[in-house]
Design a protein around this nucleic acid. Structure first.
Lengths: 338, 338
DNA sequence: ATCATTTTTGAAAACGATTTCAATAGTGGA
DNA sequence: TCCACTATTGAAATCGTTTTCAAAAATGAT
């Protein structure tokens, strides 16, 4: 392995000078600079990054913790983060929790061992108080999923509004009995959507019946099961609010199997505007989330915290959501209201 | 930051002894071992990984280079790799080429700078000869995409067979004029599928007409365009072989828009057995790829190469593909042959 | 020409671990 | 009891950088 000493020797200079050239320091004469560049070139020298990290106390790596990549939402999120990080000269380490508390904590150890300069937490299996202690070892921010009480930057989407506009859309179509699906009980993202959902209902003087609530719906398969549940109810809801396009697609697929027409007999609204929502038959009404924007913001905020050594503060960045109306909700027999 | 010296001091021992305890070396007395553990505990000591990497010349990190994560095939591949790597105590760095040669080479530099112990190449934008030089800096293996001439381990799928069984299935249904779609010209994965495709045709005494070839089809949108092309042909093919479920879904969506029935008027077969193939209407016949198995094998082979310092050899691991028959191909008016 | 700056350079000391190497202590066998 | 081991420990060197610190050289002002 060729080191800075080899370069120094070939150039007939000290390694201090070579280092200065590498790091573009001032006060190096044109001539020596040239000699260093030539020596590096002929030796094919590249600085060893472990040595650099050790000395600089910076690894130029950040980590993102997500539940799992197969979920297209997180796939997109990580894709955008990797691009944003690379643009700023950082590498992105990917950590999946697979929905395990222990695994999540295990990944946070990366901060202690100084393997990364900071972490973006886009998963939240543990209580905030158990995560907070890692703050002592490096910057940590939350993205998408969050805990309000955390005294750190949070980049999130306006899920309350998202739940609200999607529900309002269903209500406007004349529905009065709605079902509600979400992924997970603890998730604040899901909780906020529910808040928006109930707010919209309340505005119409309606109240939600918990018998129509499904809180463990993540996948297409889950969606199909939810449909079956709904289908066997005596007085079934006429519209379903879901927390993801996959679940919505599952419900639609289930309905298809049972010969139930969407949206004529059942309206379904998804969440995320994934490709799947554009190609299902019927196409799925949904709520678009600005994933790329959120990913970029998260990376920028984290890097800013890394560079400005200062202690983290309770910052909140909230991005807007947008309703996208497609076939899975409109066109039913119900009379539009308003 | 608490270092090994702090631990040594508190325990009243030398850092050599502390290091020995950390690394579970023999010849440390029970008593001192205990003292070291206690000191580490009270100080909350964690070894600094940059220092370790520098000394050990091992980072316990590997990188995987993929085109982009949004493609669900790569999302799944990376998901499985991350899990496999973590199980063995390694971190996974994710690198996307975004289909750029330069970006791909840029990521390979990680090997030179010793930021990772090895790389799994699941993208191949550059010529092998331009990549080969990085071999001098650390182990490099290929996964899925490949170049036969590379003298390194390659973990791949039997794409020739995949193309063959998918095509054979279409031919058996009685089709005689097929269209062919793939993603990219250079891809050996695509080339092998084409070989299998033409082999099946040849066995029936049929030859492929290049006017029915589409070689830049990656996305759903591309699939929709392909359908339009096919739709405006005077004597259109009655079946389409595609290189991905997304493209197949696009073709089906296009057909739906134009009122063309699948499979009655057009059979479509996908590739990958993505969730989308199970929930489209009609569900999509496809070829299942053992992604998880391939990912695990790739990680294991790479780590084996990392541990056994030896020079890389030309090893080939080939995993089988399986045909999955669904609605998008069968049920047409054609009389089955054989 | 002289003195005060400013440039330019290199030797040596970090950074935080692991690994010689040598010294000391302990063990068992004769 | 003495010798030949083995077990246990610590001092110092090492990994490849960057960063003092100080010295030497160049520059400018008087």
């Amino acid at each position: 392995m060729v080191t800075i000493d080899d370069v120094a020797e070939l150039a007939g200079l000290s390694k201090s000078t070579v280092s200065r050239v590498i790091n573009h320091y001032p006060h190096v004469s044109k001539e020596k600079k040239q000699r260093v560049y030539e020596a590096m070139e002929t030796l094919g020298y590249v600085p060893n990054s472990s040595a650099r990290s050790l000395r600089n106390k910076k690894t130029k790596m950040i980590a993102v913790i997500v539940p799992r990549l197969m979920n297209p939402f997180f796939g997109q999120l990580v894709e955008s983060m990797e691009v944003a990080a690379n643009q700023q000269g950082y590498q992105l380490l990917i950590c999946q929790t697979m929905y395990s508390k222990e695994t999540e904590l295990g990944h946070l150890e990366l901060l202690k061992t100084k393997q990364v300069d900071g972490i973006i937490l886009a998963s939240l299996e543990n209580e905030w108080e158990d995560i907070a202690e890692y703050l002592a070892y490096g910057p940590l921010i939350m993205c998408n999923e969050f805990d309000e009480s955390a005294e750190i930057p949070i980049i999130k989407l306006d899920q309350i509004h998202g739940g609200y506009i999607a529900t309002k859309h269903l209500l406007r179509l004349g529905h009065t009995k709605l079902a509600y699906c979400s992924g997970g009980y603890k998730s604040m993202v899901a909780n906020h959507r529910k808040v928006g959902f109930e707010k919209a209902l309340a505005e119409r003087g309606l109240t939600f019946q918990e018998s129509c609530g499904f809180y463990q719906a993540y996948t297409i398969e889950n969606g199909m099961e939810v449909f079956k549940e709904i289908h066997k109810m005596k007085d079934p809801p006429t519209a379903v609010f879901t927390g993801s396009d996959e679940v919505a697609a599952g419900i639609i697929t289930g309905a298809r199997e049972y010969g139930v027409k969407v949206p004529e007999e059942l309206s379904v609204i998804g969440f995320d505007n994934q490709v799947i929502s554009r190609i299902m038959d019927p196409t799925i009404s949904t709520v678009e989330q600005p994933i790329e924007q959120m990913a970029q913001k998260a990376v920028h905020v984290l890097l800013e915290k890394i560079h400005s050594q200062k202690a983290l503060s309770k910052e909140r960045y909230e991005l807007p959501l947008e309703l996208i109306i497609r076939e899975s909700t409109v066109g039913g027999p119900l009379r539009a209201v308003e």
